[in-house]
Simulated assay, not measured.
Amino acid sequence: MALVSNTELRPLDDGTVRRRVVQLLTDHIVRGDFAPGQRLTEQQLANALNVSRGPLREAIRELAEIGLLVSLPYKGLYVRSVTHKDLEELYSLRTALETFAFERCWDKRTDAAKADLRQRSADLKATIDIGLDGARAIEQELHLHSWCFELSEHSLLMKSWKSMRVNVYFYFSLHQQALNRKGPLRQSHDQYVDRACGDSLSLMLAHLKGHMRQGLETTVNALSEELFA
């Protein structure tokens, strides 16, 4: 097929390659293709991805900054491991941010917004019922929890949530592997959605705290001892 005459193709620059490498490595890590604590080398990654060292190192630096990779001087590069403290920090921060998001969005909940949340829940349940696509279930669970942040219209809060999503995805993927299940329990968000669409903010926040604590306890109990390095 001939190119249109006014089409101008440009080679990929290092920034574009870096973004693609970041996305590829993120996908592999959160899917569990690399085990927590697994050692990686630049040479192996460069050969496997067929990229030069420059953009690869920038990608590694970015993934280290968000906590998916750990680079130790004189020791090497590792996929992040999981500790009880990591989980405690993640769930405590999620609880604080989501609590604030609900406080900010509560008076902005229109009928259309509530219908949107219920649809997100229905989409997640449909994926759970099929039981074949764990990655899609994680994306939809994150999309459900994003609702209050989006509705809050608080840009810094939304930025904080986006920066945490990759780590939440990572822990959700570990949870699926530990339980050998493609997503959360079907009914696990029913009360969350009902309270979010209800009349009492205090009841919603009380449920949120319990929902997050239960998630933490389930994850800690489900993950095997060797993951907690």
Results as ranks from 00 to 15, higher is better:
R39F: 06
T41A: 10
Q43C: 01
Q43P: 00
Q44I: 06
Q44E: 15
Q44W: 04
A46N: 02
L49F: 11
N50L: 09
R53N: 10
G54K: 15
P55N: 06
L56K: 02
R57G: 06
R57I: 10
A59D: 01
R61I: 07
E62V: 10
A64S: 15
G67T: 03
L69Q: 01
L69T: 05
P73H: 11
Y74M: 11
G76W: 07
Y78C: 03
V79C: 06
R80F: 02
S81I: 02
S81P: 00
V82K: 10
V82D: 03
T83Y: 08
T83N: 05
D86H: 14
L87Q: 04
L87S: 06
E88T: 14
L93Q: 13
L93R: 15
R94N: 05
T95H: 11
E98V: 05
E98I: 05
A101F: 03
F102V: 01
E103V: 03
R104L: 15
R104T: 04
R104N: 07
C105S: 14
W106E: 05
D107K: 10
K108L: 13
K108H: 12
K108G: 03
K108T: 02
K108C: 08
A113G: 09
A115D: 13
Q119W: 04
Q119A: 09
R120W: 03
S121C: 11
L124F: 01
K125I: 13
K125G: 07
T127E: 15
I128V: 12
G131S: 07
G131T: 08
A135N: 09
A137F: 07
E139M: 07
H143A: 15
L144R: 00
H145E: 11
S146Y: 06
S146M: 06
W147I: 00
F149K: 01
S152V: 02
E153L: 04
H154M: 04
S155D: 14
M158E: 12
M158N: 12
M158V: 09
